[in-house]
């Protein structure tokens, strides 16, 4: 319990992806045309992250906490 919880390291990328997803989900709902395109782009990012992380050779995890 003495270590500070590394929030940004653990949840940082996840928070960014959550914000992007939420933006993508809402932009196509609230607008048309360019907002649809923005939605496609932002929602593709989380899927691309999955492809990227699964396809690259595994790196050893960082030892920094």
């Amino acid at each position: 319990m003495s270590h500070p919880f590394p929030f940004r390291k653990v949840y940082g990328a996840a928070t960014l992806i959550a914000v992007l997803t939420l933006f993508g989900l809402l932009s196509a709902l609230l607008g048309d045309g360019v907002w649809d395109a923005l939605s496609w782009i932002t929602l593709t990012i989380p899927l691309a992250v999955i492809g990227w992380k699964c396809s690259r050779p595994s790196k050893t995890p960082s030892s920094r906490v």
């Binding site: 990328a13 996840a14 992806i17 939420l22 699964c54 595994s58």
Partner: peptide, 27 residues
């Protein structure tokens, strides 16, 4: 973030996959 140890034992691999896909598709 996104650790995926593909050379590891199946259980570790599935654990990584569960975490990665789970957190990315969460929202």
């Amino acid at each position: 973030f996104g650790t995926y140890r593909r050379e590891a034992a199946p259980r570790t691999r599935w654990f990584d996959l569960h975490n990665l896909l789970g957190i990315v598709t969460l929202t």
